[in-house]
Write a protein that binds this DNA or RNA. Sequence first.
RNA 1: CGGGGUAUGGCGCAGGUUGGUAGCGCGUCCGCUUUGGGAGCGGAAGGUCGCCGGUUCAAAUCCGGCUACCCCGACCA
Length: 588
Amino acid sequence: MVLRMSTLFLRTLREDPADAELPSHRLLVRAGYIRRVAPGIFSWLPLGYKVYRNVERIVREEMDRSGAQEVHFPALLPREPYEASGRWLTYGDGIFRLHDRKGADYLLGPTHEELFTLTVKDLYSSYKDLPLSIYQIQTKYRDEARPRAGLLRGREFVMKDSYSFDVDDAGLQRSYEQHREAYIKTFDRLGLTYVICAASSGAMGGSASEEFLAPAENGEDTYVRCSGCDYAANVEAVITPVPDKLAYDDVPAAHVEDTPDTPTIETLVDLSNKRDDLRRADRDWTAADTLKNVVVMLKHPDGTREPLVVAVPGDRDVDMKRLEAQVGPAEPEAFTEEDFAAHPALVRGYIGPAALGENSASGIKYLVDPRVVEGTRWITGANESGRHVYDLVMGRDFEADGTIEAAEVKEGDACPRCDGTLVMARGIEIGHIFQLGRWFAEALDLRVLDENGKRVTVTMGSYGIGVSRAVAAIAEQSHDEIGLIWPREVSPADVHLIAAGKKGDATFDAAEKLAGEMEAAGVRVLYDDRTGVSAGVKFADSELIGVPTIVVVGRGLANGVVEVKDRRSGEREDVPVEGAVQHLAASL
RNA sequence: CGGGGUAUGGCGCAGGUUGGUAGCGCGUCCGCUUUGGGAGCGGAAGGUCGCCGGUUCAAAUCCGGCUACCCCGACCA
């Protein structure tokens, strides 16, 4: 393949587009790979589409190799399947809905669990047909509240989504492992660095769930990894190691105190350390000794609302995303003025355990952070305005309905697996694998006969790769100040060949000849055969476009050599024209 | 949905307070020169100044309203 820049549908921009912030977005637009059409909606130009198709090809090859079979569902879908799963409603305004001429409801598929499940139900009815893994590479549509960052979060994007169908849990585990392996091969070939993180399985339930995150400053996901072992997790799924129970024989009996002017944890701790009657004998009180009781309203999918109080040590906030991951499919909402009015047991700012719990008078569910183990000693609200209770001991003075992982995760927190500590970083979610289980099969009644002739519900796995997002993730990870740097397999070409001389001189003839030889040798060439364009412009464009190897036919030609530059390292070497093609073909 | 910002040739921007011929750089086209790091000179095309209304002899500029887009947050299988 020889792509000639003299006729290529391409215009590189000398300046950054005003609406692009992230490097991937900026450079993909500047280098002429994509153009914005509407918020979160992009067109692919020739170079960009080549990269996109390379990514797609690699994903497809690895899926096929893993034994999955490719199908293709429509993007335009009727309402019924989503009605059956309940998601026509629960998806809310996150989907694009439309009507046909008769007024019937349609939607642009945001995801295709329903279609996969129903199609398998259509065709299969025996355990002998399973296991089965099928996938598609499809354009998805989501009416994102805020599209951003170019290709990283669009309203139209391409995803590879696959589903596995098994009769039993062991089968699901095998299908899951197969996908995991395929994903590792895929992302390796894409030239991405990534971290496999434990993830929360989200609103759809399920058990095992892992995300492939490409570390990137501008990523939307926060994850942790351990400094001492290979533990890595999305911050939503971080597990807090449970401390040992403490002895509390020496702790004074709980006592309620007037604590005026202590609207914040900080002022409360200050006061507690200042007043002799409140001070701790062994050491100063810290924010971590206070127990903060945060009240939220849970909205269940059926529309009912239920108050929940979450207790966390006072030096931490409740992380709403972590909370949401725990309470799903219910959604936590802010507790409003009206809610407080409806629950007089909750004294704003002074909520304490005595008024809480399913067995208490209020009946309000009370869940505590895992750090709140038996024997821990707290300052917390006394359920009266202006008063706190001191030396309240878990297990002695109060109980909870259970624990919940909702406290924010901090850099330096303990690793749940080893003695190490956690460091935090950000990443782009490029893949997600999880064991969906029987939720969908149950909802859509996908069952098969087992070997005893009994109907059993199929168990499913769900696996996604953001194909268009991966293009941006690669760009985000692989660029420098002056342009993109593509990994070989996704690059729009293997070699960017530049004729650096004057129009009509020997360099053009030599470059032309080289281009032909490269093509014959199976090397993909982007050939800058533009006349009337200075060498400087050609060099700058080649660096912006980011093909990994740049070959310059120019002044060295007099000595029978061409210059071969490595885009990433910047290293250059002179290579005899005669052997240049073999030299290149060997090094690719 | 909350906060901040922007809207002027294809792209990036100035102008606006002080109302009066719409400007700069890049890009594009023509001619000549140039050709290893985003060339020079000369000429040219290209703009309802986001939209609606108001004030005024006169509005890109002042006033009112609207819309779109960008960024941060909330939201996001």
